[in-house]
Amino acid sequence: MSSRENILGRIRASLHRVDGDGATARVHAHIGAHGMSARPSVVGDLTAGFREKALALSTSIDEVVNIQSVPAAVAAYLSANALPMNAVCWQALGVLDWASHGVTMAARPARESDKVGVTEVFCAIAETGTLMTLSGAHTPPVTSLLPETHIAVLRVSQIVPSMEEAWQRLRETPDYPPRAVNFISGPSRTADIEQTLTFGAHGPYRVHVILVNS
């Protein structure tokens, strides 16, 4: 008997599982129903809710009118914080006009030496101020992880009330489920030494969201 059979056998014996009692069908039906449990109501404007919660997580936020305005906002953020004007970004953002705003942008996955990574997001959660990103050929997770500064471009239409809606949206994607779903709630942090909160443990020191209104 394999370990698998031994373990499952012990579980079945402990639970007095009887074959053909319909439990398997019930379990499949339960999973398939994707039932929601009690949750807090997220009331009011989603964008305002997201903004308030994200700021509380030490994420900073800027707002622009359309996607073409993103490079200027990125340039302004980098220079205001005395950060390098070299950055890497996800492929879809590579088409924007970075050069005329003084940003040297490379549309490739981040490497160890890159200081600034710019990504889009899959969606964002108003309840907690969280960004949700999916891995993929053109959306490498390393870009939001390795650089000291992560800038995320978020469209207002991507903000959902809670994680439940985020999962529903995910199920509708063509490559569902992706290899990695990363929920990001502010800059990397630790409080391991004397429970003193410190930013930039292993991941980014700064997370900056550029909210695109259209």
Binding site: S135, R179, A180, S188
Partner: peptide, 21 residues
């Protein structure tokens, strides 16, 4: 905390066209 900084859900190995994982 209301939520931890990262929640990471991983499903399967690196896909054919993925550059990381």
């Amino acid at each position: 905390q209301t939520i931890t900084n990262y929640i990471s859900v991983t499903t399967g190995a690196k896909r054919q066209d993925d550059t990381d994982g």
